[in-house]
């Protein structure tokens, strides 16, 4: 029983197919992380400024993203958008947009937190030197904030990678879907324990990807805490 179950993994191209699936997952996560960091930083900086309107908008946006489960957002963008606005996204694009929207919200909160935690005299010294507010941000505040930000951003990355497993539910062919296809073909070949091994391998693959990243975040946090 055990034997035949594991064998499924080595049939045909199954291993490469699983790895291809893993790449789809990480690709969605990577693009979303990059976009999130970018947009999140912009919104976060705006949020830490004195403009009240930006505060209200950012707060509202963050609140929505925190209330809605990601799966619901995925459904809204994949099925809802086409029916309501006649905008047609393929499943992967819809996922990237949803993860970017969510990541941007989380990131902007982190950036705001990091910027507002900096001592006030930093900004004031900059002003006293005659720097414009843009320059104060980019040459004084942001570099310092990055140090406080980086561990949390890396942590956000693992959260996004983990959440990408959800895209299988709107039909992206990624790691989980490939796994299910393998299980299905295996059951055609009278192999009934395949589900155990395939899901175990997928579990392990996610761990192998996420564990080093979260360790990195943990060490950076320790190193820079002082």
């Amino acid at each position: 029983m055990l034997d035949t179950g594991i064998k499924v993994l080595f049939e045909g191209n199954n291993i490469t197919r699983l790895l291809d699936g893993l790449w789809v997952t990480t690709r969605i996560a990577l693009i979303s992380v990059i976009l999130s960091v970018f947009f999140g930083t912009i919104i976060g900086i705006g949020w830490s400024s004195r403009f009240r309107i930006i505060h209200v908008f950012a707060r509202f946006y963050l609140e929505i993203m925190r209330i809605m489960p990601i799966l619901v957002l995925l459904f809204l963008f994949y099925f809802g958008l086409t029916r309501i606005a006649h905008i047609n996204l393929n499943a992967e694009m819809a996922s990237i947009i949803v993860f970017t929207l969510w990541g941007t919200a989380e990131m902007s909160d982190l950036v705001r937190g990091a910027l507002t935690s900096l001592p006030k005299h930093q900004k004031e010294s900059g002003l006293a030197l005659g720097l414009k507010s843009f320059d104060i941000y980019f040459y004084i505040l942001v570099p310092q904030a990055i140090r406080r930000l980086l561990p949390a951003t890396i942590n956000l990355t693992t959260r996004i990678i983990k959440s990408t497993s959800l895209v299988v539910l709107i039909g992206v062919v990624e790691l989980l879907k490939v796994g299910q296809q393998i299980i299905e073909t295996a059951s055609l070949l009278r192999n009934q324990t395949a589900a155990f091994w395939v899901y175990a391998v997928i579990f392990l693959l996610y761990f192998i990807i996420c564990y080093p990243i979260s360790q990195l975040s943990f060490h950076l946090e320790k190193k820079w805490q002082s």
């Binding site: 693992t158 983990k162 959440s163 990408t164 497993s165 959800l166 299988v168 539910l169 989980l176 899901y199 175990a200 997928i202 579990f203 996610y206 761990f207 996420c210 564990y211 979260s214």
Partner: peptide, 12 residues
């Protein structure tokens, strides 16, 4: 627990 997705845990 922290480095694997809930969905995969559920399927498993």
């Amino acid at each position: 627990s922290r480095n694997t997705p809930l969905l995969v845990q559920l399927f498993f």
